[in-house]
Amino acid sequence: MAEKKTLRQEFTKGLIKENPVLRLVLGTCPTLAVTTSVVSAVGMGASATAVLVCSNIVISLLRKVIPSKVRIPAYIVVIASFVTIVQMIVKAFLPSLNDQLGVYLPLIVVNCIILGRAEAFAGKNKVAASAVDGLGMGIGFTAALFCMGLIRETLGSGTFLSGIASINSGSGFAIPFLSQNPMLIFVLAPGGFFVFGLLMACANKLAEGKGLPKAELHGCENCPMANHCSIKDKENCESNEEEAAK
């Protein structure tokens, strides 16, 4: 019974309390780049979730085999293999989604959520817990991407689910007033930064109400490269500076 409860906690923590995008501030590049429409945002979220769950499982299975000195290259190989598999599946079955995601699909390899979870969780925990952790984090990532995509697509092009034709035969919805007067800036690059900033402000406000700390850019302790990193020793790293200031 105790085991089950902890599994549930592992799952739910990724959704809100430790939401990878809005709380841990990981994986910012895809968050900004592919959220111009809901369909590509969810497509990216689902691809990243699949990679995250599979790589978490494999890394957790191999955690006693991989020597700790070469664990980062080993993790990268595992992650890159799953990214290649997902990329081939998307290319074969959803070619138009592949076009929408473009270079960001192979770039899931360097998405810090995946390497970060491998280092922080899957390399230390059992298989079931790692799988559930990956699923929770992935769904949290997808949910944040969905919110971004919803705001940007509704305001920026006045449609909802407009790219759905790439998945099935639906055509999406046009929103009456907004589709005639779209605010183009929201689907362009500045809108991405702006919506992300405001969403994070909302998340901070909510977190503050619950007495949680504000979202900060992940400090050195979350960084997968921390052990090899000499910035940490030289105290050039921002999180160290801030701690020193306190």
């Binding site: 501030v25 800036i185 362009l188 690059a189 500045p190 809108g191 991405g192 930064f193 702006f194 992300f196 900033g197 405001l198 994070m200 402000a201 901070n204 406000k205 503050e208 504000k214 979202a215 900060e216 850019l217």
Partner: peptide
């Protein structure tokens, strides 16, 4: 207060990116 830290940095990035348009 609620914009302090990352949110305002992102909004500033948005304006910088606007200038590049």
């Amino acid at each position: 207060k609620f914009l302090k830290g990352l949110p305002i940095t992102l909004v500033a990035a948005s304006l910088t990116s606007l200038s590049f348009l």
